[in-house]
Each structure stands twice: as structure tokens, then as C-alpha cells.
């Protein structure tokens, strides 16, 4: 009996091992090839987020490790009801991102229309217009802070001083949010230009010819043909820029450190300040969770736009 039992178990075991090998071997090759990348992405991005969720329920300051403990929704309560920086940073994130995206779109559209015509040196002009996007964000932010926006030695105020009667404001002190937005737009308008230019160039020449034969002006052609055709490209570019700009803390870190006060603190920068600078793991994690939840809304919209582009292939 015992021996028989042992036999069956052993048999079952080898059978099971074989079964496992069999299932792996029977998997479609397409699935097996995906596994390494999938495993990597889950391990490095999804698993840490679950840990963030867990940490957000803990009271844990790295400087006071002995006070560590479970606090339930304590961190969230602190953020939502007792931390003025939190609500301000939500508002700041919204203002900075929306303004930067909308203005990048407008300026990018202008850039794109400029180089969508033939003229001498068009390639050079396009290259110059793209370049700000390639500049390392940290270097760009520093340069803008020092040499462009500095109240005394900055180029912007020097240009303004040529205009009689104009002010020479302390940009980062008086208009911190606007200054951040200017730098973001300078960097992201080229990105929008690239996307919109691709859209403009996918308009067939016949379509354009048709309205031109009807005697349409350049403006009518732009308004009635170009703009409607660009709708999908605006959507895609706008949503991508939103996702990337939300993640970009570089100009804030380099130019204003989130200040003056909390005037330019965005949610990702708040996470950095609380968790990394302030060593408050629990509070940083809770802020991170809220940042992710709010981002999911934007991401859902973005994925829908990408899906639509895919389906039209």
C-alpha cells in the first residue's frame, strides 16, 4: 500500500514536471518571446507600485525609524485635510500642464505651418526649430534661469529694456509659474511641430488642389483643409505631451525648487520633496498613489487615441 502510494505520488510528480515542460513547449512561440519583456516590465514597474500602495498606509520617516507603524488612511487624511501644499500642487500641476500643452500646440502648429512651405533653407530652419526639444531639460532650465530670465543679467529683460517704459520684472520671483510654462513650451512646441507636420504632410495634394481651383485663399485652405485633417494628430500629440510634461520635474527643480512658497510645486515634485528630501516614506508614497490615480484618467484617454490610430493602419 505504502509502496504503491509512493509510486503514484512519484509518478504524479514526474508526470507533473513533464506536464509543465509540455505546456511550455506547447505555448505559441509568439507568447514565449513576449515573456522576458513582460516579466521585466512587471517586475520593475508594477511590483514597485504595489509596494507604493502598501507603504502609503504606513507611518514611516527614515529619520525616525523607531516610530514606524501602520497608520491606515492616516497619510491620506494628512494630505487631503491638513496639508495646504497638496491641494496647491494639484492646482499647479493642472495649470502648468494644461497651459504648457495648449501653448505648445499653438506654437507647434505655427512652427509646422512655417516649414510646411518651400523656401530657401527650409531644412536648416526645421533643424533649428527641433533643437530645443533635444536639449537636456536640466541644461535648458539652467540656461533659462541664468542667462535668459535673470532680472539683471538676463537677455529677456535686456530686450525689454529697449522698449521704453517697460518693466524689468524678477521673472522667477514674480511670475514663477509663467516662467516654468515658458521653458516647457520652448521645449515641447518642437515636439508638437513634428507630430503636426507629419499630419500636414499626409494631406493629399489632390485635396489641396481641389480647394485651390475653387479659388480659396491660403487662410481658407489652412482653416478648411489643414486644421480638420489635423484633429487626430492634435489629439495624439496633446495627450502624449500631457503624459510627458506631467513627469517632467526638471525645470521646477532647477529654476524654482517648487517655490516661492509652494507656487510651482507639482504633484511629482511634491513626491520628491516629501519622500527623498523629507525622508517621509509614507507620505511620499501616498502622494505618489494619488499622482498615479489622477494620471490614469489622462492615460485612459491617451490609450484610446492610440488605439484609434492603430485601427486606421
Amino acid at each position: 500500500m505504502a509502496i504503491a502510494d509512493l509510486g503514484t505520488t512519484a509518478g504524479a510528480k514526474t508526470g507533473r514536471g513533464g506536464w509543465l515542460r509540455q505546456t511550455v513547449a506547447n505555448q505559441p512561440i509568439g507568447r514565449l518571446l513576449l515573456l522576458p519583456a513582460l516579466a521585466y516590465a512587471i517586475l520593475v514597474t508594477q511590483a514597485p507600485f504595489l509596494y507604493t500602495l502598501w507603504l502609503s498606509f504606513e507611518r514611516w520617516n527614515l529619520n525616525r525609524p523607531n516610530l514606524r507603524g501602520f497608520t491606515g488612511l492616516g497619510n491620506y487624511e494628512l494630505l487631503l485635510f491638513r496639508d495646504p501644499a497638496f491641494w496647491q500642487s494639484i492646482l499647479n500641476t493642472f495649470i502648468i500642464v494644461v497651459a504648457a500643452v495648449v501653448l505648445s500646440m499653438a506654437l507647434g502648429l505655427f512652427y509646422a505651418e512655417l516649414v510646411n512651405h518651400k523656401f530657401l533653407g527650409r531644412g536648416v530652419v526645421r533643424t533649428m526649430l527641433i533643437t530645443p526639444f533635444l536639449i537636456m531639460p536640466v541644461a535648458a532650465a539652467l540656461h533659462w534661469k541664468n542667462q535668459m530670465l535673470n532680472p539683471i543679467y538676463g537677455v529677456v529683460n535686456w530686450v525689454l529694456s529697449i522698449v521704453p517704459g517697460s518693466l524689468s520684472p524678477n521673472w522667477l520671483g514674480t511670475f514663477p509659474e509663467q516662467s516654468i510654462i515658458v521653458v516647457l513650451v520652448w521645449r515641447w512646441a518642437p515636439f508638437m511641430m513634428l507630430i503636426l507636420l507629419a499630419g500636414m504632410q499626409s494631406i493629399s495634394e489632390e485635396t489641396r488642389e481641389a480647394v485651390r481651383v475653387d479659388g480659396a485663399t491660403a487662410w481658407r485652405e489652412f482653416r478648411d483643409i489643414t486644421l480638420p485633417h489635423l484633429y487626430r494628430f492634435f489629439q495624439l500629440g496633446g495627450l502624449l505631451a500631457t503624459v510627458f510634461i506631467v513627469q517632467e520635474i526638471d525645470p521646477i527643480y532647477m529654476m524654482t525648487k517648487g517655490g516661492p512658497g509652494n507656487a510651482t510645486t507639482t504633484l511629482p515634485y511634491l513626491v520628491y520633496r516629501k519622500a527623498i528630501e523629507g525622508s517621509n516614506v509614507g507620505l511620499g508614497a501616498a502622494t505618489g498613489v494619488i499622482t498615479v490615480l489622477l494620471s490614469i484618467v489622462a492615460i485612459t484617454l491617451l490609450l484610446r487615441a492610440l488605439d484609434r490610430m492603430l485601427r486606421e493602419d
Partner: peptide
């Protein structure tokens, strides 16, 4: 699968920075 991959790129790094720091 394709959309799962891209959604990982779109999540803000701020959402994972705290545990990464601890780990």
C-alpha cells in the same frame, strides 16, 4: 499586451520612486 507595455511608460515615475528608494 501592447497596451499593457505602453501603460507602464505612461505611469508617472513619482508613483514608484518611494519603494525604489527603499529597495
Amino acid at each position: 499586451v501592447l497596451f499593457f507595455f505602453i501603460s507602464t511608460r505612461f505611469l508617472p515615475p513619482a508613483g514608484v520612486i518611494v519603494p525604489l528608494f527603499i529597495i
